[in-house]
Simulated assay, not measured.
Amino acid sequence: MEDEGLPAVLVSGFGGPGGVCEDHLGELRKHFNLIGMQEFVGNKTHLGAKIRAVLIWGGKPAVTEELLRSLPALSVVASAGAGLDHLDLKLIASFGVKVANTPDAVSSPTADLGMALLLAAARRVVEGHQVAISPDTENFAMNWMGQEVTGATLGIVGMGSIGYRIAQRAQAFDMKILYHNRRRRKTEEEDAVGATYCERLDDLLQQSDFVMVAVSLTPQTRGLIGRRELRLMKPTAILVNIGRGLVVDQDALLQALQTGVIKAAALDVTHPEPLPRDHPLLKLKNIILTPHIGSATHQARRQMMENLVESILASLNGLPIPNEVLLK
């Protein structure tokens, strides 16, 4: 039974692939009266007037103008994760509603995954696993080789909190670190990780053995890595994308992987997600794909939930909102 005395919060659903994690429901229900979208749609007039916050998990529910008009008491939209490309911030602000996200919770696990993908692609871990377990394998080829990571040049596209943590990890591999960002980091921050700023993305692409894409999706970054950019990369280079699928032109990437323009790729993000089951990227041997699991650790998801609770409660009590997203 939900506690009707608690503030009402709209969520996509409970459990399953698109709902709030079942492990978190007990804690959430200590603070909120959770209302699923199915229940809300069945009784909009009554429930709409009660809902004070929308909690977005996995990009759902979608915050549309129709939804905002149906929630006159709405105070805050709290979205799990760092990315905001699923939200129309100007539209939400026009209704006097605030937005919060959880960037700190996702930075370290996403950086961990970025390095995992880089290492897996470099050393052909997935291909090697298939060779090792294949019933047709009779011996291991001495000349079956991958790329060396230690001492290689890593180009990080997007030196935000995730990109910076990647640089910290890459230091342990004695990598030469280049980065391209909207704004240059402070000198002391660069020195701390041994990173060199590339004002021109082209310079980074031409010099890097590995290119790690860690930018959020904006109108400026959509299609940032396209046919021209891929051709600037070394033919031995490996592309890793942990940002958003639309930052990379997938048709151009497919052609680059098929024709040897670059050596390999590892993607945690695509567009759409998942890719259609007959998509040609799925048939390539020189690509690794993971199902958008950058923040998918028990610890990170727990912290995300706690951050969302904190932000919603702050908003409802008229306090400063942790991780409030300010409209630029």
Rank of each mutant, 00 (worst) to 15 (best):
D88H: 10
F95A: 13
L118S: 01
Q130Y: 10
I92G: 11
G114K: 08
A122T: 05
R124F: 00
L91G: 00
G114H: 10
G81W: 00
H129K: 02
I133Q: 09
P109C: 11
D112K: 04
L91D: 02
A80T: 05
D112F: 10
M115T: 10
G81R: 01
D104K: 09
A100N: 09
S79V: 04
A116V: 10
V125P: 06
I92E: 12
L68D: 03
S108H: 10
R123P: 01
L118V: 02
L87N: 05
A100Q: 07
A100Y: 12
A105N: 03
T102V: 01
G128A: 11
Q130T: 04
L113K: 07
S134R: 01
D85M: 08
Q130C: 07
A105D: 03
L87C: 13
V77E: 10
I133A: 04
T102H: 00
R124K: 01
L71I: 02
L119R: 07
L71Y: 08
K90P: 07
A100C: 15
L91S: 00
V106W: 01
R123M: 00
S75K: 15
V76K: 02
V106H: 03
R123K: 10
A121D: 06
P72G: 13
L117V: 06
L87R: 08
L74W: 04
A82V: 15
S134W: 01
A78Q: 03
V106E: 03
L91V: 01
L89E: 14
S75T: 11
L89N: 03
L113Y: 13
K98F: 03
T110V: 13
P72A: 14
L113Q: 07
P103W: 05
T110M: 12
